[in-house]
Amino acid sequence: MKRTHLPLNGLRVLDAAARHLSFTRAADELAVTPAAVGQQIRALEDTLGTVLFRRTTKGLELTPEGEAGLVALRDGFLQFEEAVRAMQAGQSSKSLTIAAPRDLTAKWLMARLTAIAASDPELRFAIVGDEEIDFAQANLDLAIRWGEGPGEHEGEALESDGMVTVTAPDGGADVAIAWPGCMGEDAASPVRVADAGLALDAAAAGLGRACVSELLARADLAAGRVVVVGAPRMVSRGYWLVAPLPQWRQKKVRALVEALAS
């Protein structure tokens, strides 16, 4: 018999009926009717091609065939319970794996996680790059993505004042620093870098102006490494905390989302 065709519900009813030797008491345990128990047992007997119970003047009794499989059946249910506990244990784990853009990790995330970890020394974080990460393959709990929304996953936006143009405090060069996704900045710029974090560093070094997320620039602005030129621009894109629904519902992930988004 294929695993996918195992009559698990019927086997569960068999276990209860065998322990009580009573369809009525088995029904009470399972919160169903005695008739439903009888139907499950008859269906199981049809599936297995054997008689499991007999009614005698003394009451209900197991046949030798029914009794033969009980030890293995109950061992199997114990292993099911252990498997469920093992899967549930991950929800109480203090270890979280996060995928995030490398520039955001360096400029914002690492400091946030350090502050969060200070409140709970048992927390453990693993941080990976976000390039085409598959949640199932990478065993991820949460990801931070740049875009217009959470896509196919559940998500929550990280608050930001939008896009800001920054430059070195002394003004720097009068050129736009281009980076992939820089939202309309001059693609022919003489200064091109790989990501927004490098654009921010290039601006701090005086190479030009960089248009980046205010969230990404927040620490450098506070430290005086760069200054804002002009007014912030509100745009449709931003950083999003995202995860598939099963991960999103986990208590440890919800707690992390609340801490990062606060």
Rank of each mutant, 00 (worst) to 15 (best):
C182P: 07
K58G: 10
R85F: 01
E258L: 08
A219S: 08
G206T: 00
E258Y: 02
T165H: 00
E154I: 13
T114Y: 00
L62D: 03
R19K: 03
R55Y: 07
V242L: 10
D28C: 13
V13G: 02
A36C: 06
P101T: 06
K2H: 14
Q40C: 03
E258D: 13
S262W: 02
A136P: 05
S119L: 13
Q39G: 04
A27L: 08
K252F: 03
T114Q: 07
M234P: 14
T56W: 10
L142W: 01
D103P: 10
A157I: 10
M183V: 07
R233V: 14
F80M: 11
D120G: 11
L70Q: 12
T105R: 14
C182D: 11
P180E: 05
A26D: 05
G69T: 00
W240M: 05
E81R: 15
S213D: 13
A68D: 08
G162N: 10
P169I: 03
L260M: 06
I177T: 04
V193M: 09
A126P: 05
H20S: 07
T165L: 00
V242K: 01
A231P: 11
L8Y: 08
K252Q: 12
G149T: 02
Q88W: 00
C182R: 05
G59Y: 01
A27D: 07
L44P: 07
M234N: 15
H5P: 00
Q79F: 01
G10E: 00
K107G: 14
E214Q: 08
Q39W: 08
L207N: 14
R55C: 07
A111F: 09
A35V: 05
A83N: 03
G208W: 01
W146M: 03
D186F: 03
A126M: 09
E159F: 08
A255Q: 15
I177N: 09
H20F: 09
T47D: 12
D174E: 15
D195N: 12
M163G: 00
E154H: 15
S22P: 04
Q250R: 15
A136L: 14
G238F: 01
A243F: 02
S22I: 03
K58T: 04
I177D: 06
V71C: 13
A115H: 11
T165I: 00
L73P: 07
V13E: 03
K107E: 15
S189Y: 02
Q137W: 03
E185Q: 12
P121S: 12
A217R: 04
R112I: 10
A86R: 05
E156Y: 06
S95D: 12
A86M: 07
Q88C: 01
N9S: 09
E65H: 08
L8H: 09
E61P: 04
V242I: 15
A100I: 01
L215F: 09
A106T: 10
V191N: 15
E67S: 14
R112L: 11
A143Q: 06
V128F: 05
P180T: 06
A187W: 04
L109H: 05
I127P: 05
L14T: 01
R54W: 03
L142D: 00
G69W: 09
A217M: 06
A17M: 06
G147C: 07
G206S: 03
G224R: 00
I116H: 13
L245S: 13
P246F: 07
